[in-house]
Amino acid sequence: MSRPEQVAPADVYYNEEEAHKYTTNTHIIDVQKRMTERAIELLALPEDSTCFLLDIGCGSGLSGEELSENGHVWVGLDLSPSMLNVALEREVDGDLFLQDMGQGVGFRPGSFDGAISISALQWLCNADQRGHVPHKRLARFFGTLYAALARGARAVFQLYPQTPQQMGMITAAAMKAGFTGGLVVDFPNSTRAKKMFLCLFAGVAAEVPKGLDGTEGEDGQAGPSMPYSRKDRDAHFGKGKGKKAATKSRDWIADKKERRKRQGKDVRPDSAYSGRSRGPKF
């Protein structure tokens, strides 16, 4: 089965029929609800307080209803008019906007106490229209989102990246916009239950939460958390003081060699110097 974003753009894929199907399928509702609960947990909001939140790719308001149930006030953005129509029919509490996240979010600095996004961010990596340049759209999205969040707020994206490269592209754009944070993987060893959450911090760095394991996963191994730091970002964008990124470590080279071997490619034999600094180049 193909994921929807591989078939057509969101505003085309989610026509009236798909939008209704999506919102009446009890399995989908259940999964959406649980992913939203988890995203709210990862936002780490102050306890017992009503917060002002942004729901990016709010669709028919399934995630928004969860936000309301948790006592929050929210604003939802979506590119699909059909989905928003279903949200209106269901009389959700949030304020809705027809918006393309690749065009940026038009809110004043510091407006939101947090943002969530359930199964929507991967759409942004597609070039659905002429003139769509994914990395530009990602940059504009993360740049405007960063500004619209209060300092110390978090943004949590549950997503289905199509490739590791796509994940890298998304993360790099977020870091460039000023976010820190990292990837939280729940139930990493279960194909059925595995879920990825990109957990981003605006302004204030914090520890990336641990992924979940246990009952839902099939073999109960804890999910790794993969923090990204300012250093990674600086390394990626050539800032910093010319220090080598962690990606050039011995382990990283060993992994890469292993991968290349498996792909049947030529690999230099390991030497005592693998992964070591060979002194200044000039």
Partner: peptide
């Protein structure tokens, strides 16, 4: 219907 159209 209360929905703002922010598309550019």
């Amino acid at each position: 219907h209360g929905v703002g159209n922010m598309l550019l």
